[in-house]
Amino acid sequence: MALLLNNRFEIWEDMNKVVDRLNEIQTKIEPRLMQLLLILIENQGKIVTRELLAEKVWDNYPGSGDGINQAVSYLRKLLDDKDKQLIHTLPKKGYCLHGQISDGGSSRSDIGGRQKKHIAFLVTACGICLLAIACILWLRNPQLISPKSAAEKKMQSHIELSKSDSLHQAKQLETAK
């Protein structure tokens, strides 16, 4: 199951993958980037210090400051955070993630939202076409769709027979005159 960030980005921790539902783009990211992103998500709305990131993600590596800067910059590009509103920088302190996080990533991330809507549209259109064909057939010949029952057919033949008898009797009367 994926995490969903701002109803747009699926975060697949086990596959180190981020899926942009809006643009239907899947991006594999390095494990460190995923680890950094998950720490920000776990601490949503709270300050995550650079020291904590250096310790947890870079194992206190001496050059971790530059790595953190580059990683945050990459995540901002990936998450379309041009205004730095999603990952907010707190100078000399760290970072704070401001976003809506929920469970609910699609189990089939390879099918984007647009494709699902397209399939639903096609199914609906086919249903409407079938309904239109049925209506046209019924208007041309109602018996094609709802054939008469045996009793109705028998009644119809009796009516036709009685009409025929009446006509026959009327002709006989005319010839007798």
Rank of each mutant, 00 (worst) to 15 (best):
K28W: 14
I111Q: 05
S146M: 08
S162L: 09
H158W: 07
D59P: 05
V123N: 08
K82Q: 15
S146N: 08
L37F: 14
C129R: 01
R114Q: 07
H158A: 11
K154D: 00
L86I: 07
F9Q: 02
R50W: 00
Y95Q: 10
Y95I: 15
K171W: 03
R8L: 09
E55L: 08
L131K: 02
I68V: 10
E51Y: 13
L53I: 12
K117C: 12
E24V: 00
V48H: 02
K171Y: 02
E30H: 11
E24W: 10
P62T: 15
L167G: 11
R8G: 12
I87Y: 07
S107M: 07
G127A: 06
I39F: 04
G127H: 00
Q85D: 12
L86S: 01
L33E: 08
A176G: 03
V19Q: 14
L122Y: 04
K28V: 15
S107K: 13
L97N: 11
Q143Y: 01
Q85P: 00
L167K: 13
L3Q: 14
D80T: 14
L167Y: 12
G105W: 00
S146F: 09
S73V: 09
K56H: 07
F9E: 01
E24L: 05
D81M: 15
R114D: 11
E160R: 15
K77A: 15
N23W: 03
H88R: 08
I87M: 10
L86V: 09
N16Y: 10
K93W: 03
S146D: 04
I39C: 00
K92R: 03
N6L: 03
A132F: 05
V72L: 14
L122W: 07
C126T: 09
L97C: 10
V123D: 06
N69Y: 12
D80H: 15
K56M: 07
L36R: 01
I25L: 12
L161C: 06
L40E: 08
I145E: 02
D83Y: 15
K116N: 02
N141F: 03
G67I: 08
E51R: 14
S109Q: 07
K117T: 14
P31R: 01
K163V: 06
K28G: 15
D110F: 03
A134N: 04
G127C: 01
S149K: 10
A176K: 13
Q35C: 12
W138P: 01
L131Q: 01
I25Y: 08
Y61Q: 13
R50Y: 02
R114I: 15
G112F: 15
D14E: 11
K153M: 12
G45F: 01
K77Q: 15
I128A: 00
L139I: 08
K153C: 05
I136S: 05
L40P: 10
L79K: 09
S164T: 13
C129D: 02
Q115T: 13
K92P: 01
L33N: 06
G67T: 09
A132P: 05
R108C: 03
R140E: 04
H168I: 15
Q35I: 03
I47T: 00
L79N: 11
L130M: 09
T27G: 06
N60A: 04
I68K: 09
L33M: 13
W12S: 11
R114C: 12
N16P: 04
Y95G: 10
W58N: 04
S102H: 12
K77L: 15
L122N: 06
G65N: 05
R8K: 13
K92T: 05
S157R: 14
E13F: 07
V57G: 05
